[in-house]
């Protein structure tokens, strides 16, 4: 009779919740940027009547998101371990590469959204 370890060698186990956050790090940051930027500038325009504040909110949240995304790319191994992933070489390389690619995909989305500040005036009715 075969033993369990032949099929499922013992080793460090990735955290389930951690893996989800690790994999979705980029898109979650993008979602956070969109939410804060959209909600923040709407409030600044409608209740504060302050285009400068609206612009500032979008710029700050975009900059923070870009720093976090870039930080992930530079220190991916640390981020992985902080999110419950086993150390290399036990870590699943496919998960690593998907997480990295999702961050790379989120970078232009964040940058693109934030760049709108430089293109149009805040708080002016679109139509």
């Amino acid at each position: 009779m075969n033993r369990h370890d032949d099929f499922f060698p013992l080793g460090p186990k990735p955290s389930t919740t951690g893996t989800i956050f690790y994999l979705l790090f980029g898109p979650l940051l993008w979602a956070g940027q969109l939410t804060v930027a959209y909600g923040g500038h709407t409030l600044a325009c409608v209740r504060g009547s302050s285009p400068e504040l609206a612009d500032a909110i979008v710029i700050v949240v975009t900059a923070l998101a870009l720093v976090a995304l870039t930080g992930f790319l530079i220190w991916q191994d640390r981020c992985a371990r902080a999110l419950g992933q086993p150390a290399l070489p036990a870590r699943d390389r496919a998960t690593d590469s998907m997480a990295r690619l999702l961050v790379v995909l989120s970078l232009p989305a964040v940058l693109w959204g934030g760049a709108t500040v430089g293109l149009v005036a805040a708080c002016v009715a679109g139509r």
Binding site: L34, A37, Y38, H41, T42, C45, A54, D55, V58, A109, W112, G113, A115, T116, V117, L119, V120, A121, A122, C123, V124, A125, G126
Partner: peptide, 11 residues
């Protein structure tokens, strides 16, 4: 507001 339009256009 136009900034919202631009934001969602970019997305």
């Amino acid at each position: 507001p136009s900034l919202s339009l631009a934001f969602f256009s970019a997305a």
